[in-house]
Design a binder for these strands. Structure first.
Lengths: 339, 339
DNA sequence: CTGAAAGCGCTAACAC
DNA sequence: GTGTTAGCGCTTTCAG
């Protein structure tokens, strides 16, 4: 490993000067700069990022904490985060918590304050109090209630509206017998979207009894199971709304397996618009969340927090993304008149 | 940030001693250890990983280089890598190259030798010569030819066999009119699997003309386009093999859109067994690659290389995973007699 | 415009 | 067993 001082030596200057040309700290004559640059390339010098981080008192990375990168929503987000981080010269550390609070806590503790300058949290089983005690700034990504700050810096998406858009779409198509599948259980992180949906349906004067709602895991299989049970129980349904695309896809499969044609016999709609939503047959109607924008905002906010740590008396900042957007595709259609 | 010496001071010892208890370097009396531990928890001390890395002359992370984490194969691999790395106390840096050689090169240069102790390369548009010059060990993951070492440490999977297994499955079912979709173009990384498939089919005395083969992108859409063109051109086909699951899924969609029932009118099989393969309707028959095992082997090999850098005259090590495994599912069936 | 010097927080000989 | 002493490679005042 060639070091700064080796470069300095070859260029006939001191390490300080080399550092100056590297950081563009001005105050370096053109000639010296050239001599240094020559030495750098000749020696194939690369700065040691650990040493730099230590001297600068900052971490060289941003951490992204997700429950599992294998959940198809996260990769798209992670890609965007990495891109944004990279534009500002940071690397991205990926942390899978597997929905385990201890793992999440361990990560937070080990990384924040040294290896990572800041951490982006998507979903970890940590309470906000713990998060707030992080030694490095934390930004909550994908907060679901723009109108109700979590007491932590965050990027919020109007998920209530997303639910509402899904509902309006189904109502507009003429559906009146509608089922709901809530990913991740009651009181969970999908409550807002569900509420947005249900409120809209009921406000339209359409009956939506609790018996039409099912909890399920936030996975394809979870949606499958929930939808199957629901359809068996409520054969009259003409449409199902799932709080996320994965369970929505599962619901389509369940319908197929029950010999129901989507969308003729059953319309299905989700929320998020993950890549996969376009890649099912029929393609899934959904309400798109501005994933990329949220990722960029999150990195941006985090970087700001790193530069200017929030004062204790400052309200925690919240950034709200642009609005969710309905993406009608082939999985929704007007209900066929049941004979 | 509380530091080592603050802890030392509170415990009435020197930094060296604290370091010793932290690293379990033995030679510390029980009492001292307890006093130190007390100070550590009382002060909420967390080691600065940058400082440690600098002092130890090693990087605190392993880097995983993929073309894009949004490609559904990578998340599963990345998850396994992170798990394995974590077990050995390393964090995982995620590097998306977007198939851009310059980005890949930049990553390699910046990370290797300081931030990252080693790098796992899945697929980057860098030639092996460049990779070989990395300042930190590089392990090629998912090398396709166990019998032909790439001149770089690697984890190999017998992809030729995978192709063979897919072929045998189709032949056994009675297919004789078979199409092939090659992901990622001619001469690309899927050549081995394709060759394994084609050789097996031909060895069985079944005709498989070049006109039954199509190149395509290694995506759902790519498979869709290629399969559509192929099916329009060769309506007599009763089965399609795609060199990867994504294009295989695309092929199923193409069939559906052409009013062909899968598997009654057309059987489809892929390779890999990504999560999504079980989540399509019909579920995709495929040949499973031991992803998790490969990830563990790769991390293991990388760690070995970090500890004992390969001598210049040492042949580059290759580890071969256990064999691919046929996963017959609902997308393949005997050909229906065409009227 | 450039150099000297101190220090970031930790580890690792080597003494005691 | 524990302390002393040097660094690891870089940045950053502060002098010159």
């Amino acid at each position: 490993m060639t070091t700064l001082s080796e470069v300095a030596h070859r260029a006939g200057v001191t390490p300080a000067t080399v550092s100056n040309v590297l950081r563009n700290r001005g105050r370096v004559s053109k000639e010296t700069r050239e001599r240094v640059m020559e030495a750098i390339t000749a020696l194939g010098y690369r700065p040691n990022l650990n040493a730099r981080a230590l001297a600068e008192g900052r971490g060289p990375t941003l951490a992204l904490m997700v429950s599992s990168i294998a959940n198809p929503f996260y990769p798209e987000f992670a890609l965007a985060v990495e891109q944004a981080a990279r534009e500002h010269g940071s690397f991205m550390l990926l942390c899978n918590t597997n929905d385990d609070a201890a793992t999440a806590y361990a990560y937070l503790n080990q990384l924040s304050g040294s290896l990572s300058e800041g951490v982006l949290v998507m979903n970890c089983n940590l309470d906000f109090g713990t998060l707030r005690q992080s030694r490095a700034p934390v930004v909550l990504c994908m907060w679901e209630k723009p109108e109700e700050p979590p007491g932590l810096p965050c990027v919020a998406v109007n998920f209530r509206l997303a639910g509402q858009l899904a509902a309006e779409h189904l109502l507009r198509l003429g559906h009146r017998q509608i089922g709901v599948i809530i990913g991740n259980g009651k009181g969970g992180v999908h409550t807002t979207r569900m509420q947005g949906f249900i409120d809209t349906v009921r406000a339209a004067g359409v009956d939506l009894p609790d018996s039409h709602c099912r909890n399920g895991l936030d996975t394809v299989q979870g949606g499958y199971d929930a939808a199957r049970a629901l359809l068996l129980d409520q054969p009259g349904l003409t449409a199902i709304f799932a709080t996320n695309d994965l369970p929505a896809i599962g619901a389509m499969h369940a319908a197929t397996d029950l010999n129901l044609n989507v969308p003729d016999d059953l319309s299905v709609i989700g929320i998020t618009d993950i890549q996969m939503a376009q890649e099912t047959r029929p393609a899934l109607s959904t309400v798109a969340i501005p994933t990329q924008e949220a990722a960029e905002m999150a990195v941006d906010l985090l970087r700001k927090l790193i530069k200017h740590p929030a004062l204790p008396d400052t309200p925690d900042e919240m950034r709200v993304t642009s609005e969710p957007l309905l993406k009608p595709r082939a999985s929704t259609a007007p209900p066929k008149h049941k004979l």
